[in-house]
Amino acid sequence: MDAFEYASPTTKEQAVALLAGEWGSTELLAGGTDLLSLMKDYLVTPKRVVNIKSVQELKGLRYTAGSGLRLGALVTIAELVEHPQARKEYPALIQAAEGIASPQIRSLGTVGGDLCQRPRCWYFRNGFGLLAKDEQGGSLVADGDNRYHAILGNSGPAYFVNPSSLAPALIALGAKVQLFGPGGARELSLDRFFVIPKTEQDREYALKPNEILLEVLVPPATKVRSATYEVRQKEALDWPLVAAAVALNLDGNKIRTARVVLGHVAPIPWKAPEAEKVLAGKTVTEDLAAEAGQAAVSQASPLSRNAYKVQLARVAVKRAVLQAAQGGV
């Protein structure tokens, strides 16, 4: 990797002031499990790396029954999975966190890093750019090896899938994020944090180049049952092929409202309102769960080599619904 200058601020104001106003010349370092690999492959070549791990206010995991869960951006995945109240209240989140990579990654990797990690698209990782275009501007993905690419939200120009494990669960649980930049703090619902880039200069999230993610806020879920179901080729050290996160707001046995979010199927975590409609007002049965799975993929348009992911997504939703209804981590 190229040499860089290194700064380790202790406040969020300092961190933001150290970042450049455009992408490219500065990068944020937290867990480092993605950034250092990107730098070694010259996919990002920052002149300055800003290590935010000494910014105390980005740390800390707090739960109260009244306001729910506050996850500082620097909370590690290991800290999250070991938190007793988070385990009890947010099974979908814990299941997603436990699926992340390996113990070594969970030791270092952070909640903020999981949300901001760059796509695993092999065209991107091999230097063909986020949108993976050929010299004539055509997509390398559409006619190429797209077996791990998007089946939804893939009308272009982006075909990669969002790699976050936590995002589908957090969005299903109604999470918000606090961002901080030179102009102060702003709050976004997490589903609006992710964007489909239109040009090679864009990123996949709504952060501005000189903004940082402060914290994730998850509302109380005492009356919510949730689950994440991941379909994986490898049990560890890999990203899922497809994931489904489901949060059911129950009234006795009846579902009042449901949230269904798919992961690894689109350039953003993919909300499935079609499935939510199927579930609302009903009692969970295996048939209903299967119907929700079918509805979730009703708009899917697979590429040349990834039609199998439609079936995986259908089944993931069905199993997540049944698992959520059952409860527990």
């Binding site: 860089f4 290194y6 700064a7 380790s8 601020p9 002031a17 106003g21 010349s25 500065t26 002149k47």
Partner: peptide, 17 residues
């Protein structure tokens, strides 16, 4: 960008490259 951005944060020690 880096030089401009650095100005308000001169109290943070910058190491390297």
């Amino acid at each position: 960008g880096v030089a401009e951005a650095a100005r308000p944060a001169t109290d943070v020690k910058i190491l390297g490259p």
